[in-house]
Amino acid sequence: MAEQVALSRTQVCGILREELFQGDAFHQSDTHIFIIMGASGDLAKKKIYPTIWWLFRDGLLPENTFIVGYARSRLTVADIRKQSEPFFKATPEEKLKLEDFFARNSYVAGQYDDAASYQRLNSHMNALHLGSQANRLFYLALPPTVYEAVTKNIHESCMSQIGWNRIIVEKPFGRDLQSSDRLSNHISSLFREDQIYRIDHYLGKEMVQNLMVLRFANRIFGPIWNRDNIACVILTFKEPFGTEGRGGYFDEFGIIRDVMQNHLLQMLCLVAMEKPASTNSDDVRDEKVKVLKCISEVQANNVVLGQYVGNPDGEGEATKGYLDDPTVPRGSTTATFAAVVLYVENERWDGVPFILRCGKALNERKAEVRLQFHDVAGDIFHQQCKRNELVIRVQPNEAVYTKMMTKKPGMFFNPEESELDLTYGNRYKNVKLPDAYERLILDVFCGSQMHFVRSDELREAWRIFTPLLHQIELEKPKPIPYIYGSRGPTEADELMKRVGFQYEGTYKWVNP
Rank of each mutant, 00 (worst) to 15 (best):
A2H: 07
E3L: 03
E3H: 09
Q4D: 15
V5Y: 07
A6Q: 09
A6G: 04
L7C: 06
S8F: 07
S8H: 07
Q11F: 06
V12I: 09
G14E: 11
G14F: 04
I15D: 07
R17Y: 05
E19S: 10
L20M: 15
L20Q: 09
L20W: 09
F21K: 12
F21L: 11
Q22C: 04
Q22D: 05
D24W: 08
H27A: 07
H27Y: 09
Q28K: 06
Q28R: 08
S29M: 14
D30W: 05
D30H: 06
T31R: 06
T31I: 11
T31H: 10
T31D: 11
H32Q: 08
H32A: 10
I33N: 02
I36G: 01
M37H: 02
M37D: 00
G38R: 00
G38F: 02
A39N: 02
G41A: 10
K45F: 11
K47E: 10
K47V: 14
I48A: 05
I48S: 00
T51G: 05
W53V: 00
L55H: 04
L55K: 00
F56V: 02
G59D: 04
G59M: 03
L60K: 02
L60P: 00
P62Y: 02
E63Q: 07
N64L: 04
N64P: 05
T65S: 11
T65G: 01
T65M: 10
G69R: 00
G69N: 05
A71S: 11
A71R: 00
S73V: 05
S73E: 02
S73I: 03
V77T: 07
V77R: 06
A78F: 08
A78N: 12
D79S: 07
K82Q: 10
K82E: 12
Q83K: 11
S84P: 01
F87Y: 06
F88M: 08
F88A: 02
K89I: 07
K89Y: 07
A90Q: 03
T91I: 05
T91K: 14
E93R: 13
K95H: 08
L96C: 08
L96T: 14
K97G: 03
F102I: 04
F102N: 01
R104I: 06
R104A: 04
Y107F: 11
V108C: 14
A109C: 10
A109P: 08
G110H: 00
Q111Y: 11
Q111I: 07
Y112I: 03
Y112D: 04
D113E: 08
D113H: 10
A116H: 13
A116T: 07
R120T: 07
R120C: 10
L121I: 05
L121V: 03
N122L: 02
M125W: 00
M125F: 07
M125A: 08
A127Y: 05
L130M: 12
G131V: 04
S132V: 11
S132I: 12
A134V: 04
N135V: 02
N135P: 03
R136H: 08
R136T: 02
L137V: 15
F138V: 02
L140H: 02
L140W: 02
A141D: 08
L142H: 11
P143I: 07
P144I: 13
P144K: 11
T145A: 14
A149F: 09
A149T: 05
V150Q: 00
T151Q: 08
T151L: 06
E156T: 09
S157K: 07
C158V: 08
C158P: 00
Q161N: 05
I162M: 10
I162G: 09
N165L: 04
N165M: 06
N165A: 06
R166T: 02
R166H: 08
I167L: 12
V169G: 01
V169M: 08
E170S: 09
K171A: 11
P172D: 05
F173S: 10
F173C: 02
F173T: 04
G174W: 09
G174V: 08
G174F: 08
D176Y: 05
L177E: 06
Q178V: 14
Q178F: 09
S179I: 04
S179Q: 09
S179C: 04
D181A: 07
L183N: 09
L183T: 13
S184D: 07
S184A: 09
S184P: 02
N185Y: 07
H186R: 07
I187T: 15
I187E: 07
S188F: 06
S188Y: 05
F191D: 02
R192Q: 05
E193C: 03
I196G: 00
I199E: 00
D200F: 06
H201N: 14
L203Y: 15
G204C: 15
K205Y: 15
E206Q: 04
E206C: 13
M207K: 03
V208Y: 15
M212S: 02
V213E: 14
R215Y: 02
N218G: 00
R219P: 06
R219N: 13
R219K: 12
F221T: 15
F221V: 15
G222Q: 06
G222E: 11
I224M: 12
N226K: 08
A231P: 00
A231C: 08
V233R: 01
V233E: 01
I234V: 09
I234Q: 15
I234H: 14
L235C: 14
F237K: 04
F237D: 04
F237H: 08
K238R: 07
K238H: 13
K238V: 14
P240I: 11
F241V: 15
G242D: 09
T243M: 14
T243L: 13
T243R: 08
E244C: 07
E244V: 09
E244P: 07
G245F: 07
R246D: 13
G247A: 12
G248A: 14
G248W: 12
Y249D: 14
Y249H: 14
F250C: 04
D251W: 01
E252F: 03
G254C: 07
G254F: 02
G254A: 03
I255D: 02
I256G: 00
R257N: 15
